[in-house]
Every structure is written in structure tokens, then in C-alpha cells.
């Protein structure tokens, strides 16, 4: 699994629970190192060990922890870069949702060896969408749930998200997240200034 993904989880744990908690998790994972490097590559087995240790330490379902990680990635000022990159997807939430189809390609433009599962947005009716997340990165759909929720806040819209499981009930098939847009301009969103990024 790409270092960026491992590193994102590390950033979430350190920022939310502190360095000590992370050190304990990595000790329990027994990988022989204590930090992930964003620009290196790790085996799936290494990432799985870390995730299992994380789950043990938190005593919560991994799906919930991953969803919180997704929220953290968008809403925490420490990782502002990712939120900005996502905001480039559209001027409103619906446009942003449609831009998710391009997300894996956009990710690859930024980091050539970062492969994210293919995403497909299906508009069921106005304001009602299914986001189909192809397999390949276990847990990615939960991180997406957190990202989708936080991005709705970012745009100031109110949405209801529902994780519908896999399409045919097996682990190998695509997962579905249903998205209901309840109200646009529900709250004051965060501003997005195209030129705010200092070079």
C-alpha cells in the first residue's frame, strides 16, 4: 500500500490521540519501524498489521476509525493540501461528486504510483446518488465516507450518507455508498481561494 495512505492514517492517529498512542500501535504491529514515509511503498501485509494493531488499540470497528480518518484528511488544517486538491473538483458539492470519477486519475497526476480504486457516480434522481467504489484497496470506501461527509461541510451542504455494502455480498465486488443531498447552502461553507496556495 502506498506510503501516503499509511502516512495519512499515522497523521490522523498522532493528531487525534498523540505520539504515544501511535508508538504503542506500531510496537504492537511489530513491523520493525515506527513511522511510515509518505513517498515510500509498503507491502499490503505491513499495512494490514498496522491496521489490525490500530483496531486493537482503539477497541472500535476499523470501519469507524477509517471514516474518521477520511474526515480528518479534509477538515484538519494540517493537511490543507488535500482539501484544496479536492475542492478543485468543482464549485459546488454536486460538481465535486461528479469529479470523483476522475479521482484516481487526478491522484495519479499528482503521485504517479498512487493507485486508487475506480469510482463511479450514478445519479439515481436529482439529489440522490450512488457512488460505486471498485475493490482493490480494502477499507477505502470507509475513508471515502469520511471524505464525502467532510467535503459536504466544506461546501456548506447537508447530506445523508449510507454505506450499502458490496453489490453482490462478496468481498470481491464493488462497494456502494448512497448519497442523499438534503439541502444545499445549509450552512456557511469554507471559502476556497484558487490562489491561496503559496508557491
Amino acid at each position: 500500500m502506498h506510503g501516503l495512505i499509511n502516512r495519512a492514517i499515522q497523521a490522523f492517529v498522532v493528531s487525534t490521540y498523540g505520539e504515544d498512542r501511535w508508538a504503542n500501535i506500531m510496537e504492537s504491529a511489530d513491523l520493525g519501524f515506527s513511522e511510515f514515509e509518505a513517498m515510500l511503498f509498503y507491502t499490503d501485509a505491513q499495512s494490514t498489521k498496522m491496521l489490525r494493531a490500530l483496531e486493537r488499540s482503539q477497541e472500535r470497528a476499523l470501519s469507524e476509525i477509517l471514516e474518521d480518518t477520511g474526515t480528518f484528511l479534509v477538515s484538519n488544517p494540517q493537511v490543507e493540501a488535500l482539501r484544496r486538491l479536492l475542492r478543485f473538483g468543482g464549485v459546488n458539492y454536486v460538481e465535486f461528486l461528479h469529479s470523483l470519477d476522475d479521482l484516481p486519475d487526478r491522484a495519479r497526476l499528482a503521485v504517479a504510483d498512487l493507485h486508487l480504486p475506480a469510482l463511479e457516480l450514478v445519479e439515481i434522481s436529482p439529489g440522490q446518488f450512488d457512488l460505486i467504489c471498485q475493490p482493490g484497496l480494502p477499507g477505502f470506501a470507509f475513508v471515502l465516507m469520511g471524505v464525502l461527509r467532510a467535503m459536504a461541510d466544506d461546501y456548506g451542504d447537508l447530506v445523508i450518507l449510507d454505506y450499502r455494502g458490496t453489490q453482490d455480498g462478496t468481498d470481491q465486488s464493488a462497494e456502494v455508498i448512497s448519497i442523499t443531498l438534503v439541502e444545499t447552502d445549509f450552512a456557511e461553507g469554507r471559502t476556497f481561494d484558487l490562489g491561496a496556495h503559496s508557491l
Binding site: L85, A110, H197
Partner: peptide, 13 residues
């Protein structure tokens, strides 16, 4: 603009 920011973020990492 997206690409410039994405590259800057990746370069920074």
C-alpha cells in the same frame, strides 16, 4: 492550477 498544487505537495513530501 490543480497540477501545480498537487506537484508542490508531492515534492514537499
Amino acid at each position: 492550477l490543480y497540477l501545480v498544487e498537487a506537484k508542490s505537495a508531492a515534492m514537499e513530501a
